[in-house]
Amino acid sequence: MQFKDTKINGVKIISPVRRGDHRGYFSEVFKDNWFCENVADVRFVQDNESLSIEPGTVRGLHFQLDPFAQGKLVRCISGALWDVAVDLRRESPTYGKWFGCELSAENGTQLWLPAGMAHGFMTIAPGTIIFYKVTAPYSAENDRGLRWDDPEIGIEWPNTASPILSEKDEKQPLLRDLPTYFHVAV
């Protein structure tokens, strides 16, 4: 496996190596020791998966508050999506900035988002399945969100002509209306 830093401190792109032949390929997509030594020394407690049937489906931007703030290791196992992290750590030099990349079943790329990030994605292929490991269990009481198309953040989504959103995601607040939830560790 290989990793690459992004413009947001702590957010990393992970590229598992695929070894293939005429039958297909084999790939180690997660190794605990390697991950702890090279990316983040964390413990994953839950795996999540969601299917989005139509291209243009937007899920997010979501995050959870402490003590259930989640680090996420995200990958696409069917189809393709544009995956986004937004830094919500108030003292961070990249506070309010975003990073996005394409995750697909074809490219096998993964994205690591430490706690303190809002996470969201837009599907760019039908029948897209996203799979992600998290460092804290889901907590409805600590679940929060951020508006996916906040002009102040300026995320460059692949297609905003007619996004498909949940009622919850249509009503999320703007960044400027969020209280300070996360701080950069000193």
Rank of each mutant, 00 (worst) to 15 (best):
L165D: 03
R176M: 04
A69H: 01
D149T: 04
Y95W: 09
A69R: 02
K171Q: 09
H183E: 15
Y138E: 02
Q2C: 02
T123F: 04
A80I: 14
E54R: 08
L61K: 07
S50L: 13
D169P: 01
C101A: 15
S15G: 02
D143C: 03
K7M: 08
S139N: 14
I13M: 12
T6E: 08
A136S: 12
L88S: 06
I77G: 11
V186S: 13
E167W: 00
R147M: 11
T123N: 01
G100Q: 00
D41A: 15
A115R: 06
Q70G: 09
V42T: 09
P55I: 14
F63A: 05
A185L: 11
T57K: 00
N48W: 06
M122H: 02
P158K: 07
L113C: 04
S166E: 04
P173Y: 07
D66P: 12
F131S: 15
T6D: 09
F121E: 02
Y95N: 03
K133C: 03
F182K: 06
V29R: 03
D47S: 13
G71P: 11
G24S: 11
F121T: 07
F182G: 08
L174C: 00
F131V: 14
T128H: 09
D143I: 00
A140R: 08
P16E: 07
Y132L: 04
L65M: 12
P163M: 10
D149Q: 04
L65Y: 05
S50M: 11
R75L: 14
I129Q: 10
F63E: 05
A115L: 03
